[in-house]
Structures are given as structure tokens and as C-alpha cells.
Design a protein around this nucleic acid. Sequence first.
DNA 1: GTGGTCTAGACCACC
DNA 2: GTGGTCTAGACCACG
Lengths: 129, 129, 129, 129
Amino acid sequence: MFFSVDPANGLAIYEQVVRQVTFAVAGEVVKPGELVPSVREVARELTINPNTVARAYRQLQADGVLEPVRGTGLAVSSGADGRCRERRRQFIRVRLHQVLLEAKQSRLDDRELCDLVATELAAIQPREA
Amino acid sequence: MFFSVDPANGLAIYEQVVRQVTFAVAGEVVKPGELVPSVREVARELTINPNTVARAYRQLQADGVLEPVRGTGLAVSSGADGRCRERRRQFIRVRLHQVLLEAKQSRLDDRELCDLVATELAAIQPREA
Amino acid sequence: MFFSVDPANGLAIYEQVVRQVTFAVAGEVVKPGELVPSVREVARELTINPNTVARAYRQLQADGVLEPVRGTGLAVSSGADGRCRERRRQFIRVRLHQVLLEAKQSRLDDRELCDLVATELAAIQPREA
Amino acid sequence: MFFSVDPANGLAIYEQVVRQVTFAVAGEVVKPGELVPSVREVARELTINPNTVARAYRQLQADGVLEPVRGTGLAVSSGADGRCRERRRQFIRVRLHQVLLEAKQSRLDDRELCDLVATELAAIQPREA
DNA sequence: GTGGTCTAGACCACC
DNA sequence: GTGGTCTAGACCACG
């Protein structure tokens, strides 16, 4: 299993699944043509409702990330990796923009904001000379 | 009026009001002891329901940011500015952490991530040397 | 001035004034026939709205505790001391009953309740061999 | 249903619900992990508005007494029993203190006060040796 | 089915 | 005028 969810996250569980799968494809943890775990398996593994997984997979099909293989399961669509990378980039970009804009609009001091960004960037990247 | 809301933001309107007021106090747009606009005034101004504003103001009282002045209105509590600044810092910090961690976990390339951060930081800051 | 109010008490200010005067009469701090401070004086002293004091005095007249002395002010009614003592007794009795009943209904342990009562009784009475 | 409300109590209905639930948890009528009756069920049972119940439950979440189980309902938080017991104790203690102090300050005779306390304590306790 | 949110409109006490 | 409370009814996302 290449993803997990946090039920007490505030975000909808099915959305967490959608994003996790999208990012897994973007990061080439699963490649086009490979099968993703079945709805039942994911539900059992994460102890969430199968309906919730089904809903996520339904949206991923609508997104063109997954496609059904008759009688076998769901596979990552060909070319989905590129699209997922773009989606990941957009996602990160928008969220970054939001938080930085919000900080600026709240009249947070420039220096304090830069400090925060630097600190958090460093915290994320364990090794960085 | 020192704040506004976006009804189609995804976030609850009352939460937007709570945050806006908190940030306004943090940025010293309103200072301790000063009255905030009345429930009805805010509701009229933002064309939202008075109950929604009342709910936000109620939470701000629970947060120790506002306090009632009987028959007069709600005023910023003394010492609320410091607490609001801390709350603002925490808020920004957590959101930054979330998005950066998410980027890292999705195996986004370090260089691409840094480019994004630099770009968005520049976009936020009007003056660019 | 033989009483005070706490604006941030939750209870209405005018009710606090009513009760304080009633209890002052019951405790013979002011006796029948004596004048109570004027509306303006009380308002100035407690820095509350004169309307609020007037309202309290109005109710005290309706209660038969105060009566107007033409051109002079308001005086404690004759016989008001007895009535105020009875009112005070009732008031305390009812409030005691409420809190004890509530404690019992919430399944608070008998022993813990008795401890609380004893402790608070002792705290009230500074000297008690 | 392990609680009830009195609409004409002076206290806000939602506050009565908050207190009843808190005391029920303190008295182990409901235990951590167990679900509390749904908003709609309580509203139907007590014939009050669902919004009023929702408001009480919202505050209980803020108090850390209840926590949402997505799509299932609200459950008593783990460790809430201890906190609720402490809160119950504080609540009773403060109310006792208020009424006793008030009695003392109104110069009520010590003997009369003790009589009142003894009488009401006896009235509360069914068994009387 | 669950809780969460919002709107609309009403009544209250207080100043 | 102010905030506080309650009711009524609607829509949403989630499981």
C-alpha cells in the first residue's frame, strides 16, 4: 500500500485518497499500466468505508488517472504520469500562493515571513549543506 | 470596515470572519479597547446573515479576542494583540509546513519546489530589487 | 456608598443594584426612613448609566422597599427591613437548593459534596473554632 | 435519553444541554468512546430545535468532551470523564461559594445560614438517619 | 443516516 | 441602538 489517510484531518477522506493516488503517480511510485489495489483491499487496509474508496476511484477515473481493465481492476492510465505531475505542481503552487498572500495581507512583517519560510523549508529538507 | 469575506472560498464564512478579525488585531488595524463594528453593521456591509457574524464574534469571545461592553458592543480585549500575533504566526507556520511537507512527500523535485517558493514569494512582494 | 456592582458578572447590572439595596436593608446597613443615594450619585460612583440606576430604583419602589419623599429623594419604606430579610432568606434558600439538587442529580458522590460544603462554609467564616 | 431541559429556566437551553452532557459523562452515564444521541434525536426527544442541540454539541467539541466520528455521529472523547468530573466539581464549588459569600456579605446571621444549609442538605439526601 | 453551515425572522434584556 | 437566544427550514459533504 503506497498511501495512508488521516480520518481526523478535517479534509474529506475520499479527497485524501484522490490526492494520495495522484501524487503517487506523479512521483512514479506507480507507473502507467500498473494496477492499483482493489477497492476492498484499500478499504480493509485503511479501515475506511468501501464506498469512500469507490468514490475516490470514481473521481480518479473522471480525472483520467485511472482506467478500468475489464475483469481485472483499475490501472493507471497511459500518460497519466505527466498529467499528475502538472496537477501536483498546480496544487502546490496554489496552496503556496494562498498562504503567502494571506500572510502578506495580514500585515505580517516581511522579515518574520521570510524567517518562517526559511525555517520550514529547512525543516522539510533534512540534509542540505 | 477592515475586512471582507469570500462566500465561495470553501472555508466557512464565519471562520473567515474570525480569521480576519484576529489578523486585524494582530496587525494593529484595531487596538485593544476599541470597538469592533456591530454584528448588524458587518452583516449589512458584507451582505451576510447577522447570525453568521454573531457566531464568529461568539467564537472570538471564546478565544479571548473580544469582550462585551454591556449595551454598547464588543471591544478588543486588552492583551489580545499579542495573542493574535502569536496566533497569526502559528497559523501561517502550520499552513506553510503542511504544503511544504506535502510537496516533499509527493517526491516533488527539490529544485522545482525551491523555484515555486521563490516565484510565489516574489509575486507577493510588490517591490523586487 | 454601601454597595458595588460587577459589570462583567453576567447578571444584569440593574438587578445587582436591586439585590444590593435589598440586602443592605435586610442587614440594616440602611434603616427605614433613611434616604438612599440619588440616581445621579450612584451612577457617578459606580460609573454606570443613570438609566440603569433609575430602573433599579423603579423596581425597588414596586417592591415596596423604597418610597419617594417629595422634593427630597427616595427613602427606605417603613417595615421594609422585615420584608427584605424575608426576601433575603428566600433568595439564599432557593439558590442553595438549586446547587445542592444539581450536585445530587449529577451523581456527585455524597462524601465529595459534603466536603465541598464544609470547605466553602469554612472559607466564608474566617474565625470559627 | 440521559438528560432533559427546562425551557423556562432562565438559563439558555443550549447551556443546559452542555451541562447535562458534561455531568452525564462525569457520572459515567456515558463513557468515553460511546456515541451520544444524534442532534436530530435529541431535538425530537426534547422538542427543541436541532440548531440549539447542534450549538450545544459544538461547544462540547470545543470543550474536548465530544469528538466527531465522520459520518457516524459524535462520541465521548477518551479522557473526557476525568475532565468532566473536574469540571463538575469546579462548577458546584463556584456556585456554592457564590451563594454562601453572598449570604455572608448581606450580614445574614451565622446561625440562620447554618440552619438553611443543614435543612437543604437534608432535603436533598433521601436517607436521613 | 450523520454533523456542518447558512439564511430568515423573531423575541429578549440591557443601555 | 447593542448582543444573545431560539425557531424554522434549507443545502451540503460524508459514510
